[in-house]
Design a protein around this nucleic acid. Structure first.
Lengths: 193, 193
DNA sequence: CATAACTTTTGACCTACATCAAATAATCAC
DNA sequence: GTGATTATTTGATGTAGGTCAAAAGTTATG
């Protein structure tokens, strides 16, 4: 596969938000490169600054942090999503988030410097960024609400719906910490179905 | 106060993220207008589309939704923040959020159409939007984490720190639903200090 | 393919917070 | 100001989900 082909999926993604000129397409193709991760591979260490954003083409990336020695899953990537450590990536400083690959995962990545170049030269990229973040906002608000006002079982049901195609590939302990419950409780919830 | 004066605070806010040209300042001044709300006034009804974004200069706005007949507070504005119903405002459709004024509140507002005009004609406004949203992201992620892994008391302590200057002006019931606990529990937490 | 190293399940018991109910205290409207 | 609302506190009791511990199942590695 040449690079133009590999970035087709990404173009489709961008075009949900902005039209892509040929010039921009070519600039994107030059700057977006494929990289794969083996199952269990660490994609980002919290002790480093996140300088790359990964677009998941196949597989699952997980964002997590460590609290009291335990890994707390914050987020699972679906396919066709950018994954990075937001504050680290945008503000070029360390943050608490690790990223790893739950299974063998194919991604394309862009370096923060290249992205900044695109922001500086293609105002539509700024627009893309604003619009795509906007949709994420709603998800965040819903999740905050659900953490406060729904039972563990309701949250698990919702999780299964949102992650319908991948939830069974994520280890139980990771799902539990994502939902804010213990493994034992999640195991019992599963059992009584 | 003429309008140029009233928008000074907002200029300071913008300049935390982007430099403001004189042209842009003048365009902003033309489009940003003051409006005040009495204590208890409804700023946005969930049954309508949110077409204005409010910049709080004095007072407190609250975003809430209704679940099982009860008001659940989602967010309290600090001073110098934009408040709107994000998905409604950005996607021009109804959403579940109401906004009201907890006390007499002074704001400046901009209409969504005017904002779109600015986005279309001043790429730096897109950049402002991207950067300012970026900082909010971190707050959302922290709140999601805190809802899952901290006790009611810890969340209340954190709330007091974050809203140090206004927390005592917000009625207990509203604080409780914001924290995801009952009024009774919050009352007991307060009592034992 | 065997043993080590995780992951998931099951059980007993405990606690933080919810629910329901009723008594005060504060605020509002006339 | 005074009665009517509305907000807050206090008490008794219930329960979802936590903790600790150990067994059973699964996956990885030499």
């Amino acid at each position: 596969m040449n690079n133009i082909e590999t970035t087709e999926n990404i173009f489709v993604h961008f075009e949900k938000f902005i039209p892509l000129s040929e010039t921009l397409k070519s600039e994107l193709s030059k700057r977006i490169k494929p990289v794969e991760f083996k199952k269990g591979a660490l994609v980002l260490d919290a002790n480093t600054i996140c300088t790359k954003s990964y677009f998941v083409n196949k597989g699952i990336l997980r964002t997590y942090f460590i609290k009291d020695g335990k890994e707390i899953s914050e987020y699972f990537s679906g396919v066709a999503e950018w994954v990075n450590s937001p504050r680290s990536f945008m503000q070029r400083k360390k943050d608490i988030y690790y990223i790893d690959a739950i299974e063998h995962t194919e991604t394309y990545f862009i370096n923060v410097n290249d992205l900044v170049y695109l922001f500086d030269n293609f105002p539509e990229m700024e627009r893309y960024s604003r619009l795509s973040m906007g949709t994420l906002f709603g998800h965040f608000m819903e999740r905050i609400a659900s953490m406060r006002f729904t039972s563990a079982k309701e949250r698990y049901d919702h999780f299964q719906r949102v992650y319908a195609d991948i939830y069974h590939r994520i280890p139980l302990g990771m799902v539990a910490s994502y939902l804010g419950i213990t493994q034992e409780t999640l195991s019992r919830i599963r059992a009584e179905k």
